[in-house]
């Protein structure tokens, strides 16, 4: 139920890739309200041309991430009361990605880097082969399982200062994906993955600041995954494996 006395002061980024500015809106404050609810209210009641992305509204699809008061958040699962500062919200497009319009960013660079990091499945069999047994208890599978719940929301990518400083850096999500595949018994792309993450812009560009882990909405640790890649790449270098 709306509280007639309370309203939120919300600044929302409006503009395209070249120019834009924050616009302010007064939005009715509710007891239970997510940041995505606030954005939807503005579009439906005040600014019909406001562009933003969402799909599932339950934290599964990874499409609604935005900067909220300067920090990357999955907006559909972020309660206003937890992030509003004195009833104020500043909502902006995700950091480190080109803006298309308003709150919608171009995700191409983010996903291109997944491919560049060899974050694609490398099959070694065909569909006629028997299904390979995978023991859940092996250390490799445990390591892979720790990272596979990524929803590709790009919150870690937006949080990462290394990405901001070095546009060639593949970023936490792509490297986390590479790490899960490296530990996947069914994936045969070990050499390709380690080649990809050992190049300039790969895992060696991570400064271990840990913003990815701090902001990951699924509480994953890309930092740990990247440390694993650094370890594997270093051993491979020392053993001179090809």
């Amino acid at each position: 139920m709306p509280d007639a006395a309370a309203s939120l002061s919300v600044s929302v980024w409006r503009g395209g890739p070249e120019a834009g500015a924050f616009r302010s809106f007064d939005v009715p404050a509710l007891k239970n309200q997510t940041v995505l609810d606030v954005v939807a209210w503005i579009q439906r009641n005040a600014e019909p041309t406001l562009s933003y992305r969402f799909a599932c509204r339950v934290g599964m699809c990874g499409s609604c991430a935005m900067m909220v008061n300067g920090q990357p958040r999955w907006t559909c699962r972020t309660h206003v009361r937890k992030v509003a500062e004195d009833g104020r919200l500043e909502i902006a497009p995700l950091r480190n990605l080109p803006v298309i319009k308003d709150l919608a960013v171009d995700m191409d660079p983010f996903f291109d880097k997944w491919v560049k990091a060899e974050g694609v499945f490398h099959s070694s069999t065909d569909r006629a082969a028997d299904i390979a047994p995978v023991r859940p208890s092996t250390p490799a599978r445990v390591a892979a399982d720790a990272g596979i719940e990524c929803i590709n929301c790009a919150v870690c990518y937006a949080a990462c200062d290394s990405v901001a400083a070095n546009p060639d850096y593949l970023g936490p999500a792509a490297l986390n994906r590479a790490w899960t595949l490296l530990n996947d018994a069914k994936d045969s792309g070990r050499v390709a993955i380690l080649d990809a993450v050992s190049r300039p812009g790969g895992c060696t560009s991570c400064h271990s600041q840990g913003s990815c882990e701090r902001f990951c909405p699924n509480e994953l640790s890309p930092l740990t995954s990247i440390a694993g890649l650094k370890r594997e790449a270093a051993w491979r270098f020392l053993r001179k494996e090809s």
Partner: peptide
């Protein structure tokens, strides 16, 4: 900027 060779040289 930092290939594997330089990275390892710095670590070692």
């Amino acid at each position: 900027m930092l290939d594997m060779r330089l990275y390892m040289l710095q670590r070692l």
